[in-house]
Amino acid sequence: MSAIDQLTREFSRLPGIGPRTALRLVYHLLKRPPDEARRLAGALRDVADRVRPCTRCGNFSEGELCEVCTDAGRDPSTLCVVEEAYEVGAIERTGSYRGLYHVLGGRLSPLDGVGPEELNVAPLLARLEEGTVRELIVATSASVEGEATAVYLEETARPHGVRITRLARGIPVGSDLEYVDGSTIAEALAGRREM
């Protein structure tokens, strides 16, 4: 297989990239100075070699512990549980959360064979056992599977005596009520607050 074919095949394995887009990316790299392709190759190698799951929370990390876990300014009494490591970034970008995280590595999905044993639930319970955490924020997705996962975590974590909260759900910021589906409006009504 030629080098061009090989790189095209590797690019087309990435999400959202089909064979034609992959080939276009390869041609683009070939048109650029060779150093640019070498930098890309180096960056890919670094990610593969250096990034691993944080041993405490499961977030992406270049060391034993991730940047969040080693940040002395974070509030260790609040723990936010997310399904995937990339969701940590989504919450971090809001700049409104100063606690720690725990990455489950997925959500309960019976038809895919994903049960509690396949998720990082045991390490979560071990963290609760340490006694530092006062509030557990369950930030699993707002799907049926995400909700079932949240309920399971709530039942499992309840004996540890921590406050357990769930992210609020409702009307997306900037959207028209007219275009929001009935289920979301019902959730928003149920979760309304005093003004």
Binding site: L108, P110, E147, A148, S183
Partner: peptide
């Protein structure tokens, strides 16, 4: 959608049964 069945997610055993 005519009806969601989010109630099945409020109990993991119900969720498992529905699955």
């Amino acid at each position: 959608p005519a009806r969601d069945r989010r109630g099945l997610a409020t109990d993991v055993l119900r969720f498992a049964g529905a699955s």
